[in-house]
Amino acid sequence: MTPAANQSLIPASRARAHIFYRRLSLAIALFALCSHAISMPAAAADRTLILATTTSVRDSGLLEALLPTFEEQSGIEVRVIAVGTGAALRMGREGDVDVLLTHAPSAEAKLVDEGIVIRRTPFMKNYFVIAGPSDDPAGISKADSPISAIRLIAENESRWVSRDDDSGTHKREKSLFATAGVDGHPQWQGFERTGSGMGLSLQVAGELRAYILSDIGTFLAFHERIDLKALSHPAESLKNIYSILQLDPTRFARPIASSAADELEGYLLEPSTQKRIGQFGQQRFGRPLFTRLHSKKRDP
């Protein structure tokens, strides 16, 4: 929700209602935390780090491959909360978590601008894919760029499944449609909005034989079951950069485990970790899911 909408919802004169509402949102946030199964290792470590990330990152299995080594080396217990990008960023904004791992550059930039995030460090990338039914009714596999593929889909008013959930993927979809010159809020029959995660949205697209923008990891995990094909080619406009975001600990009443967050960042950028990132997915999908980002200088 935008701050403006927030304002219209809570008139300044009704401070009590405001407080009630804040508490209610907090309660719902807590519910969200609980319902997203925070993993609790049997042995409690001395230090804990609460990491908010997106479901697509969790679903890829990358964290399960990387974090045990980090926990062993550092003695830090990492609790992963996997939610939508919007919820993850919101949790960072509220200081409910210690560190964020997201892939929504423009939304991340906003947090950086506001000073909530003091450092944003990209550490890996891959490419989104535009997937669709194998008979490709709009003929987008012959398009010369993702943008013209979107134009073809819009012109044909082909079925499209949008996540419409304010996630990194959805933000990218919106920017692709905007670049293609398609109305910001497409309304044709067959333009479906799921409001759900990538996996569910892919299932919907598969059932409805629709086109969809997906991250490569989730797509590879699902594509055999849902009978959809990747119809796009890697391009700059589909580049998907994953960053780790450090919060400004001075802004929150709750203490932020900043040093632990720093250690996690250092671990992710280590050459050996980077090498493992670059190889991750080879075994399961026959190809790596991510490309490592070398020696990127840290933003101040």
Binding site: S25, D166, T194
Partner: peptide
């Protein structure tokens, strides 16, 4: 499937808004 304007009901909408961080 929680499709907007088609099959979205209160419970699925609440789950969706929660996961999107739109808690209000």
């Amino acid at each position: 499937g929680n499709l907007d304007g088609k099959t979205r009901v209160l419970t699925t909408a609440i789950m969706m808004k929660t996961s999107q961080g739109q808690w209000e």
